[in-house]
């Protein structure tokens, strides 16, 4: 009886277990196959270059000569390089300006989209500037903002105001660049934030409305706190993105006037491909990795990005 009862019972128990084990092995292979392209890509285009970069940062390689090991010389030089510190300062200034404009404008746009209209056409129009290649954006604005022949100055002088050297004055160049990149990036930020707002359940808003909370109060007391994880995500991504500013500067100001827009990426590029100091450029790049890593960590920590108040 026991046997007879156990016999038919055994396979169903053992069967799935067997199948599970076999399946696990099969999945492993399949998983490896699925992961391989990403892993190979990561290894080939990220890990290997990063390791090479780390090695070059300890050499005096100038692209054409044989790299010679110089230890930490490049890093020692970096500490005393006023242009490096200047580029960090300029970059920080740009990041603050750019993040500020993009977040405020992006939140405003997202709130409008969320509460006023959900038109697909409007949402699509928002990202159009973001779809324009950065170099095109840069060239476009360079002509528009030109001190002498630009359309914007034409409007200014037409209204009786003095013309401005938007990209040629040391005081205006960096803010101008920040406005240009914000022009192209805000729509995308707004879309991300809008998606975050959609995650906030409707009933919360109904409850808020019942409690007599107005539109603005609801926004600050309900919407913003509840979309903290997405805010954190947007902040981290935009921060890293702003640190990597290059094309707009390369097209419009080339780092000038007098270092006013020489952001860290442009400085690295100049060292590497204008002065061919690959070793020093690598050291600069690795220092930037360090800075970005610390900043990201701090941000994630401060914003408790992995925990949602909705849960």
């Amino acid at each position: 009886m026991l046997l007879r009862q156990g016999e038919p019972a055994a396979p169903p128990v053992a069967g799935p277990a067997h199948r599970l084990k076999a399946g696990a092995r099969g999945d492993g292979r399949l998983a490896a196959a699925f992961l391989a392209p990403a892993l190979i890509g990561f290894g080939l285009f990220y890990l290997y270059p990063a390791l090479r970069g780390a090695w070059y940062s300890m050499t005096d390689w100038n692209l054409l000569s044989r790299p010679r090991f110089v230890g930490l010389d490049n890093y020692a030089r970096l500490l005393h390089d006023p242009l490096f510190w200047n580029s960090l300062k300029v970059t920080a200034g740009y990041v603050v300006l750019n993040l500020g404009i993009q977040l405020v404008a992006g939140l405003g746009l997202a709130a409008l989209l969320h509460r006023l209209t959900r038109s697909l056409v409007l949402r699509s129009l928002l990202v159009v500037p973001w779809l324009v290649p950065n170099v095109t954006t840069g060239l476009l604005w360079m002509w528009l903002l030109d001190a002498d022949l630009g359309f914007v100055n034409h409007l200014l002088t037409g209204a009786g105001l003095p013309a401005q050297g938007f990209l040629t004055s040391p005081d205006l160049a960096l803010p101008s660049v920040a406005v240009i990149t914000s022009w192209s990036g805000t729509g995308y930020t707004a879309l991300l934030l809008y998606a975050g707002m959609l995650l906030v359940p409707r009933h919360v808003y109904e409850a808020a409305a019942l409690d007599g909370s107005g539109e603005i109060r609801t926004f600050f007391r309900v919407t913003l706190p509840l979309m903290r994880p997405i805010l954190a995500f947007v902040l981290v991504v935009s921060l890293i993105d702003s640190f990597q500013l290059f094309d707009a500067v390369a097209v419009t100001t080339k780092g000038g006037p007098v270092n006013a827009t020489r952001v860290i990426y442009h400085y690295i590029y100049e060292q590497a491909f204008t002065h061919f100091k690959m070793g020093y450029a690598s050291a600069l790049a690795l220092s930037l990795v360090l800075v970005l890593g610390v900043l990201t960590f701090v941000q994630m920590r401060l914003l408790r990005a992995s925990a949602s108040d909705l849960a």
């Binding site: 002498d148 050297g165 040629t168 004055s169 419009t252 100001t253 006037p257």
Partner: peptide, 20 residues
């Protein structure tokens, strides 16, 4: 001459070509 911070960045040939 145009003040340096308010000069065109498009190059002298463009500015001269515009008659300015």
């Amino acid at each position: 001459a145009a003040p340096y911070d308010k000069k065109s960045s498009l190059g002298p040939d463009v500015v001269l070509g515009s008659g300015k």
